[in-house]
């Protein structure tokens, strides 16, 4: 991770995950792994968030919720798919109610595989997301300058 110009806030939503990845996402914010040392804070409000962590695949009931949260977030924003279910559907990809990975609903920037995803992977993915966030912010600024 290079230099980041801001402290990114993150929001977490459980698609149709089995909870395993959710508790690992929460765990990565707890004293042992402590993602907050990078200036990251977990928020419940999509309008405050820069990074969107999604766990679990999308299904017919929650696809609109995932899209809604994504739409409410302000630009620039980065989406991290946490866990193999969020990446591709995982072991549940054959289930009748599972549409597939989160990329079927919203654009995903970082894929963090694992079942359940390990906190180290989440930290890695979030730091990668911070870099992408910076890039997106720079690009937006450049476009604004041109316009």
């Amino acid at each position: 991770m290079g230099y980041s110009s801001k402290s990114p806030w993150l929001i977490h939503y459980d698609g149709s995950s089995c909870n395993g990845c959710d508790i690992e996402v929460l765990d990565s914010m707890m004293p042992l792994y402590d993602i907050e040392r990078f200036g990251i804070i977990n928020t419940g409000n999509p309008k405050h968030a820069d990074i969107f962590l999604v766990t679990g695949s999308v299904n017919h009931q929650n696809i609109n919720v995932v899209k809604e949260i994504y739409d409410q977030m302000l630009e620039p924003k980065v989406v991290v798919a946490c866990g193999i279910c969020a990446c591709t559907g995982g072991v549940f990809r054959d289930c009748y109610n599972v549409i597939g990975g989160v990329d079927k609903a919203i654009p995903v920037d970082v894929y963090a595989p694992g079942c359940a995803v390990r906190p180290e992977t989440i930290i890695d993915a979030v730091l990668k997301a911070v870099d992408i966030l910076d890039e997106k912010a720079k690009k937006m600024k450049a476009e604004k300058g041109r316009g």
Partner: peptide, 14 residues
């Protein structure tokens, strides 16, 4: 409810 429904009981058939 139904946000987390995957239907995995049916996977047992396959």
């Amino acid at each position: 409810i139904g946000f987390v429904h995957r239907g995995l009981e049916k996977l047992v058939e396959t």
